[in-house]
């Protein structure tokens, strides 16, 4: 007996959106699974915000379809709105309101009963670390705190899917790290999160899957590791040994698995012929020859470098 097909959190088919004469999004096929922390990467004007706005039911697509947890975002927009939490790339706050009033207001907009709202507001404030600021005027909060408040608003109706557009933009390093920790906690709680960001190094450590988009077209969608494999021309390892590296270089060059060995800043970069090779021969060869290995690690491409390699830098 075949198991029932799992409904993806997000599925778009040939999704497109045109603004006047500008094609913001063209034939986007995207799938995000439940429980994913999904990074959405692209240059300015690539179509990330448009995609998120369509998924949030704010914009309607010009062509194609988009489904959130099996519901069409156009035909069943009302039901979709209960399931998603959307945080745009601006604050969207009433600065003359108190923190609790603001959350209470949006709780009422999502039709949460009054008796339940008070506890929900307290819970989400606790989750984003703003409990101490509950009586403060929003205008008096720092940028980082307003960003947290935005996240609290997104969570007020306990959505299953979070659509976060640049949630860490403009935050200081500490606030960014704290924001990322909150997102990881939310993923552990079972939320699916789509996050668009320009800070790729953070997405690399945060997300399990990602999509890269350029000029409204999807370039890659899948696991983070997959995109690196796709653009890596050859597998390489960095080696540091005690003493002069020349002997080690000679030893490694004699191995058939080795393509080349370069010396740089007192270390050796060993490039392998076969990308499927696990590189274990490096340590084996050097130890057997009596060399003391101080460091051995794979030369991994950063997401930023991957992004630069797979995109052409075109904007629209």
């Amino acid at each position: 007996m075949t198991p029932p097909p799992t409904v993806p959190a997000v599925q778009t088919r040939s999704l497109g959106r045109i603004f006047g004469s500008m094609v913001a999004l063209r034939s986007l096929d995207l799938t995000v699974h439940k429980g994913d922390l999904f990074g959405f990467i692209g240059s300015n004007g690539a179509g990330k915000t448009t995609t998120l706005r369509i998924l949030a039911t704010f914009l309607t697509p010009t062509m194609g379809t988009a489904e959130v947890l099996g519901l069409d975002v156009v035909k069943e927009a009302d039901r979709v709105r209960h399931l998603i939490g959307y945080m745009p790339d601006f604050f969207g706050v009433y600065k003359d309101m108190e923190v609790t009033e603001y959350l209470d207001f949006f709780g009422a907009c999502y039709k949460i009963p009054a008796a339940q709202r008070e506890k929900t507001v307290a819970d989400v404030l606790e989750l984003v670390g703003l409990s101490e600021k509950k009586g403060s005027l929003i205008g008096a909060l720092s940028r980082g705190m307003q960003q947290r408040l935005g996240l609290a608003r997104v969570l007020i109706h306990d959505p299953q899917l979070l659509l976060l557009d640049e949630p860490a933009s403009g935050l200081d390093p500490r606030a960014r790290i704290e924001m990322m920790a909150i997102l990881q906690e939310l993923q552990r709680m079972g939320k699916t999160i789509i996050i668009s960001s320009h800070i790729l190094s953070e997405l690399q450590s945060l997300c399990n899957r990602c999509a890269i988009i350029e000029r409204g077209q999807l370039i890659y969608s899948g696991p983070i590791k997959g995109v690196k494999v796709g653009v890596t021309e050859a597998r390489a390892f960095w080696v540091r040994v005690a003493g002069a590296p020349e002997t080690s270089r000679e030893l490694l060059l004699q191995r058939p698995e080795t393509e080349s060995v370069e010396s740089a800043e007192g270390r050796l970069k060993v490039v392998l012929k076969n990308p499927d090779d696990d590189g274990s021969f490096i340590a084996e060869t050097l130890v057997q020859a009596g060399q003391r290995v101080l460091e051995l690690r794979e030369d991994e491409l950063g997401l930023e470098e991957v992004f630069l390699r797979v995109t052409k830098g075109d904007t629209q």
Binding site: D78, P88, F91, Y94, F106
Partner: peptide, 13 residues
């Protein structure tokens, strides 16, 4: 101007 209209339009209202 402050962006809340976009937020209100994606609530169930």
């Amino acid at each position: 101007e402050n962006g809340t209209l976009e937020l209100l339009l994606v609530t169930p209202l």
